[in-house]
């Protein structure tokens, strides 16, 4: 069971209050009409599915209902850090 810190409520709460919401930093294509079917498929369906430290989105569904970013290990489930949206836009940016 995970203990997740909500960056908005500023409290660490049980995982049952939260819902996972998929891989982070997947940006919608800027000009959707100008891209190929491959690029669309990559945006809609393809995922990194990283084994190791992984940035993902969670929503505090039974709390403030806000989405935020979590860096978590997909091997040990350990949560390394959380961040509100807008604090970063990609994995490499700091």
């Amino acid at each position: 069971m995970l203990l997740i810190h909500c960056p908005y409520c500023k409290e660490s709460r049980d995982q049952s209050e939260f819902s996972p919401a998929g891989e982070a930093f997947i940006a919608r294509p800027k000009s959707p009409e100008g891209i190929s079917d491959e690029e669309w498929a990559d945006y809609v369906f393809y995922r990194t599915n990283h084994k190791g430290n992984h940035w993902e989105q969670w929503v505090h569904s039974n709390g403030c209902r806000k989405y935020f970013l979590v860096e978590r290990s997909t091997i040990s489930h350990q949560i390394l850090q959380v961040a509100p949206f807008g604090a970063r836009n990609s994995e490499t940016e700091l």
Partner: peptide, 14 residues
């Protein structure tokens, strides 16, 4: 299944 990604061969109690 658990909704989050994992390679850990274990999931949540809930």
């Amino acid at each position: 299944i658990d909704g989050y990604n994992s390679y850990a061969q274990r999931g949540s109690t809930k």
